[in-house]
Amino acid sequence: MEPILLDIPIQLETERLILRAPHPTGDGKIVNKAIRDSHRELKEWLPFAQEIPAVEETEKNLRLAHINFLKRDSFRYLIFAKEHNEFVGVASLQSIDWDIPKCEIGYWIDTTFSGNGYMTEAVQELVDLGLQTIGFRRIEIRCESTNWKSRAIPEKLGFLLEGTLRNDDLSADGSRLTDTCFYSIIR
């Protein structure tokens, strides 16, 4: 498999959502606003959210995500609700190993939209993309064992909990050891 030759869609559509790759410029403001609005909740689980980033930092991160999409290193999608065209969150196919081939899915949501099933719908679309279109043999989701909202997504989508890795990682703020739940789905 030659990844650079794969035709990966830059936009996906579900019943309620549009998922699109970051534009080369200009997405930083909307994503940064969601990080600011959800900072308290994101900070608990995500190292990047320990401090509220400047809009320029978010823009830089998204431009790099755009480049990584083109290089086939990772596939980040910004999620928008069709009904009101508002930014909902981010979901990515990342940590890609083309030799297997396999990847991991990562995600976060603007907490304004939490509890509506948007992220489960978006992750299901990425699972379909990964297994059916790209041809991954394995997709993983890893999350902290006490992050019940994050764990609910792979459990709803039929992922297998392969195990819990004890004292596997540091908490998002680096202050304590945490356990990591390891989910997978295979083709």
Results as ranks from 00 to 15, higher is better:
114 S>D: 02
187 R>S: 12
5 L>F: 11
175 S>P: 05
98 W>G: 08
38 S>Q: 02
156 K>G: 10
101 P>R: 12
157 L>S: 07
30 I>D: 09
148 W>H: 15
82 K>T: 07
64 L>A: 13
59 E>V: 05
159 F>L: 08
146 T>K: 13
147 N>E: 05
136 F>T: 01
71 K>Y: 08
101 P>M: 13
119 M>Y: 00
69 F>E: 07
174 G>V: 03
149 K>N: 10
173 D>G: 09
176 R>M: 07
114 S>C: 10
141 I>R: 00
59 E>N: 12
169 D>G: 13
5 L>R: 13
13 E>K: 14
90 V>M: 12
11 Q>S: 14
160 L>F: 08
20 R>S: 12
21 A>P: 06
143 C>S: 15
126 L>M: 12
78 L>W: 02
94 Q>M: 15
33 K>N: 14
44 E>M: 07
57 E>M: 12
174 G>T: 03
71 K>H: 11
85 N>L: 12
153 I>R: 00
139 I>N: 00
27 D>W: 06
55 V>G: 09
174 G>Y: 04
50 Q>F: 09
139 I>K: 00
36 R>D: 04
38 S>L: 02
79 I>R: 01
135 G>A: 11
104 E>I: 06
172 A>I: 03
87 F>V: 04
82 K>F: 10
175 S>H: 05
159 F>D: 01
40 R>G: 05
62 L>E: 01
165 L>K: 10
126 L>D: 02
89 G>C: 04
69 F>K: 06
30 I>K: 15
108 W>S: 00
82 K>E: 06
34 A>K: 00
152 A>N: 09
52 I>V: 14
95 S>H: 12
74 S>G: 10
21 A>T: 11
97 D>M: 12
181 C>F: 00
89 G>T: 02
18 I>L: 15
86 E>H: 12
28 G>Y: 02
73 D>A: 10
186 I>L: 08
166 R>I: 06
39 H>Y: 06
153 I>F: 03
43 K>A: 12
145 S>I: 04
93 L>P: 01
156 K>A: 14
15 E>P: 08
83 E>A: 14
78 L>Q: 02
56 E>R: 13
98 W>Y: 13
84 H>Y: 10
37 D>G: 12
5 L>N: 14
114 S>M: 07
60 K>D: 09
145 S>C: 08
49 A>W: 00
116 N>P: 05
97 D>S: 11
115 G>D: 06
27 D>P: 10
56 E>Y: 07
128 D>R: 15
25 T>R: 14
127 V>T: 08
32 N>E: 10
113 F>C: 02
110 D>Q: 05
